[in-house]
Computed example of a mutant assay.
Amino acid sequence: MTQTHADTATLVVRHQVHQHHEQRYETWLRQTIDTASQYPGHLGVDVVREHQAGLVNFTCVLRFDQVQHLQGWLDSDARKQLVTEAKPLLHAGDNTEVLLGNDFWFTPDNGQQPPLWKQACVTFLVILPLSLLVPLLWQPLFRAVPALGGYVASNVLITLSIVLLVVYLFMPLAMRVFDTWLTPAQKETHP
Score class of each variant (00 low, 15 high):
residue 53 A to Y: 12
residue 142 F to P: 04
residue 34 D to H: 15
residue 166 V to L: 10
residue 157 L to V: 06
residue 148 L to F: 01
residue 134 V to A: 05
residue 57 N to Q: 15
residue 71 Q to P: 00
residue 177 V to R: 09
residue 12 V to H: 02
residue 76 S to E: 02
residue 175 M to S: 03
residue 78 A to K: 09
residue 105 W to D: 07
residue 22 E to Q: 13
residue 82 L to T: 08
residue 27 T to M: 09
residue 177 V to Q: 05
residue 44 G to C: 01
residue 3 Q to F: 07
residue 36 A to F: 02
residue 133 L to C: 06
residue 102 N to W: 14
residue 6 A to N: 14
residue 59 T to I: 14
residue 111 G to A: 15
residue 73 W to G: 00
residue 93 G to N: 11
residue 157 L to E: 01
residue 83 V to N: 07
residue 151 Y to G: 01
residue 175 M to P: 09
residue 99 L to S: 06
residue 130 L to I: 06
residue 77 D to I: 11
residue 8 T to S: 13
residue 129 P to G: 10
residue 6 A to V: 08
residue 178 F to Y: 11
residue 158 I to M: 02
residue 186 Q to K: 14
residue 107 T to M: 07
residue 177 V to C: 10
residue 47 V to A: 05
residue 173 L to K: 04
residue 27 T to L: 09
residue 87 K to G: 00
residue 189 T to M: 12
residue 8 T to I: 10
residue 127 I to L: 14
residue 57 N to D: 13
residue 182 L to Q: 03
residue 116 L to K: 14
residue 110 N to L: 10
residue 91 H to F: 15
residue 143 R to C: 04
residue 136 L to W: 07
residue 82 L to R: 12
residue 167 V to Q: 12
residue 68 Q to W: 05
residue 12 V to Q: 11
residue 123 T to G: 11
residue 156 V to D: 02
residue 128 L to V: 15
residue 121 C to S: 13
residue 85 E to G: 01
residue 77 D to S: 10
residue 35 T to E: 05
residue 2 T to P: 12
residue 129 P to D: 04
residue 15 H to C: 15
residue 91 H to I: 11
residue 176 R to S: 07
residue 182 L to C: 04
residue 88 P to N: 10
residue 24 R to Y: 03
residue 68 Q to D: 12
residue 78 A to Y: 00
residue 46 D to M: 14
residue 176 R to C: 06
residue 40 P to V: 09
residue 86 A to Y: 01
residue 169 L to I: 09
residue 60 C to S: 11
residue 191 P to E: 14
